[in-house]
């Protein structure tokens, strides 16, 4: 078996761990939210964002609201 950890396919470490009272998950905080987008402006998976279920859901809502208001892109 190939050693997964040594290969280039090693998944990148999670971007953030967050306490669930952080008020920055808001559609107006576009600079912060941009950290959780891929270069193509897809939302990062929970594995890569490092968020818990509730935080990830808030993140998803916030980014989608920001997209609706043209604060963040749908695609890059």
């Amino acid at each position: 078996m190939a050693e997964y950890s040594k290969s280039s396919r090693t998944p990148p470490p999670p971007i953030a761990t967050r306490n669930c009272d952080d008020p920055r998950i808001d559609y107006k905080e576009t600079v912060y939210l941009h950290k959780f987008l891929t270069p193509q402006a897809q939302i990062l998976s929970r594995k890569r964002s490092g968020f818990c279920t509730q935080c990830q859901r808030q993140l998803k809502e916030a980014i989608k609201r920001a997209r609706h208001m043209a604060l963040m892109p749908f695609v890059n």
Binding site: K28, R67, M69, A70, L71, M72, P73, F74
Partner: peptide
Amino acid sequence: RWDERRLAYAIRGRRRGTY
């Protein structure tokens, strides 16, 4: 007035808008 900024994508031909 919250902000005036460039839109992430054009809406009805507008590239900028005021929030």
